[in-house]
């Protein structure tokens, strides 16, 4: 409404529904904040088990986001730019963790990398134990995080189109140069938002971790698992930790989206399509 352009693409009634939606999302959060026992908040949140869980969550989410970027970028490029049989099928399969209940992902990972699993048996013989380790937590988080990165990046790649890449190629740039100098800078905002989503998903990962990695303080018990456990005996601690998780999520998302806005503005306007 503050914009100087002469039209608004948002009909008024959208504001009404938007307000209802925002209320529906925010009221439960508010209800939780109201439940926090502020006199005990600091000791609850700074207890040894809470700090261990928070630290483990941040570490594993950072590691799994890195894994998701390393694995997800090539996958998104293949899906957006490649031409090969079974491409559509591959896309639906890659996106499967988005719609699967995480516990199903955990079971799948267990039967792959577990002691009796498809690959786990050979790994065990080689002396690599994945179950009940921090590695298992990172694997579970990567498994559920990759699809977010792929969806986000593939969308960005398709929106960017191949025009600039084609021009660069006709000017003699090799594929690797095109990728590095043209494609990746163009889709950087999409890549960044995908990485943020993957990080946030890792931070909240619960089902797959519980099923595949177990729950041990400082090793596999991430913040969501700690909250789940604390709820058994001390609901106040669970609420306090939930608030910490919400705060961390808000900080991560807002930090990551702030530079993006600038990037979006600086991209050349493609004009409105009729």
């Amino acid at each position: 409404m503050t914009s100087t352009t002469s039209f608004s693409a948002v009909p008024r009634w959208i504001y009404a529904i938007g307000a209802v939606a925002a209320t529906a999302m925010l009221v439960p959060l508010l209800a939780m904040v109201l439940r926090v026992d502020w006199t005990r908040f600091v000791p609850l949140v700074t207890s040894e088990s809470s700090l261990d869980a928070l630290l483990l969550s941040l570490k594993t989410s950072a590691a799994s986001t890195t894994c998701a970027v390393v694995l997800g970028v090539p996958l998104a490029m293949l899906l957006a730019r490649g031409h090969f049989p079974g491409q559509r099928l591959l896309r639906s399969l890659v996106l499967l963790p988005l719609v699967l209940p995480p516990v199903v992902g955990g079971i799948a990972l267990l039967y792959t990398f577990g002691r009796q699993g498809l690959l786990g048996k050979s790994l065990e013989l080689a002396g690599i134990h994945i179950a009940f380790s921090t590695t298992a937590v990172i694997m579970a988080q990567t498994f559920v995080g990759v699809p977010f990165l792929v969806v986000s990046l593939e969308g960005a790649l398709r929106t960017a189109g191949t025009r600039y890449e084609a021009i660069a190629a006709t000017l003699g740039a090799a594929p690797w140069t095109v990728l590095r100098r043209v494609t990746l800078p163009l889709v950087l905002p999409g890549l960044a938002s995908g990485a943020v989503l993957a990080f946030a998903r890792g931070l909240g990962e619960f089902g797959a971790t519980l099923t595949f990695a177990g729950s041990l303080q400082g090793v596999t018990r991430t913040l969501p698992l700690e909250i789940y456990l604390q709820r058994e005996t001390d609901p106040d601690a669970a609420v306090a930790l939930s608030l910490v998780l919400v705060a961390v999520a808000i900080i991560v998302v807002s930090l990551a989206y702030r530079p993006l806005r600038g990037t979006f503005r600086s991209t050349p306007s493609r004009g409105l399509r009729p």
Binding site: A131, F132, L210, G214, S215, L216, R221
Partner: peptide, 8 residues
């Protein structure tokens, strides 16, 4: 006992 995991 040193468990590898303490479940809920």
């Amino acid at each position: 006992i040193s468990p590898v995991s303490e479940e809920s």
